[in-house]
Nucleic acid binder design. Structure first.
Lengths: 183, 183
DNA sequence: TAGTACGTTCAGTAATTTCTGTACGTACTA
DNA sequence: TAGTACGTACAGAAATTACTGAACGTACTA
């Protein structure tokens, strides 16, 4: 049966590409392939089915699915009468994209802003002290300036992530290609 | 000398945060710390200075700097009379951000679009063949639909990256906080 | 031209990450 | 209540990635 092979190959090609792409975003290739499997599956899958399909351990399936859940890329599905946990992909890829980067970036941004603000405060302390030597004062001033610029950048990034989280970015880059239609 | 320590500590804190953040984007912590070092440095550094400062091998410095160069986050600086190569950070963090994601994402997007288009073509081939069994036809149709949706998503992502590359995103999310001033 | 200073290539090593199998806890079933 | 089916923690194994040091090529220097 040749056709079946063609379908299979067409899936595999896309799954590989998607997995590689997700890997670029810091997701393990295995997790990426699992996502691909779920993406093409016509029904939610159990851990055992995934294990079977990917030839990996159940433990791996468990932890991988959990990662995808944490990123809101996969959801737990409840089906009457089925005892095993079932999982399916979040169908809306835009939503997944926004969730992924909101979740992933927000932490980093917050951490950076906190660190920078703390350091700025320390530098200001040094600068406001009349006993500070001229040499130190100059160094502190330079660093202070750099940190202020960095802070501004992270605040901008925060606003970018806001526009992901609220989906307002879609007002600027609409899904519908005809962006300039309104004008 | 207490003040010097404070300055040092304030730098280290930010460098660590930045490195951790970059790690989130798929950059090695070592490379992140190197970037931090260059960020705070008041002058361009040589490989030997970096090696000294970070306590790592020159080989590592060479490859790490190359990575940062590839991402346009660091640039080679030429100074009259200095034989060694000198490197400094790209001062404009927004530019670095845009370059980073343009470079990193574009490849993945292109790869995915290619793969998806190829698979779609194959599926259409199967679908247009009158000998195709009803069972196969149905499967192909479902996959085809999924791939069309995925394609739409990647094309959207491509437009998002376009807005990074052209910096048009700054029209929507301005660096200057007062976004709604014009209205 | 020989000598030296530099950056990089490459093969091997170290460190980290990912994966597996066993053991365990919980919840449903008879 | 005992038994079974399930998901997950955890420790060790396998695979991958990051790092190093020696050797090499190139270009400047005397």
């Amino acid at each position: 049966m040749k056709d079946k092979e063609i379908l299979e190959r067409s899936r595999t090609r896309v799954i590989d590409a998607v997995a590689q792409n997700m890997n670029l975003y810091g997701v393990t290739p295995s997790i990426g392939r699992l996502y691909g499997l779920l993406f093409f599956s016509d029904k939610p899958l159990t851990l055992d089915e995934m294990k079977e399909e990917l030839g990996m351990s159940k433990t791996s399936m468990s932890t991988s699915v959990r990662s995808l859940l944490d990123l809101n890329m996969v959801e737990k599905v409840w089906v009457k009468g089925v005892r095993k946990d079932l999982y399916a992909v979040e169908e809306d890829w835009y939503q997944s994209f926004f969730d992924f980067f909101t979740i992933k970036w927000r932490t980093g941004i917050t951490m950076n802003i906190t660190a920078i603000e703390k350091s700025i405060a320390e530098l200001q302390e040094v600068l406001s002290n009349p006993d500070t030597s001229e040499e130190i004062r100059e160094l502190a001033q330079i660093d202070h300036l750099k940190l202020e610029k960095a802070l501004e950048y992270y605040e901008w990034l925060n606003r970018l992530v806001d526009s992901f989280e609220t989906k307002e970015i879609l007002d600027f880059i609409p899904i519908d290609k005809k962006k300039d239609l309104v004008e």
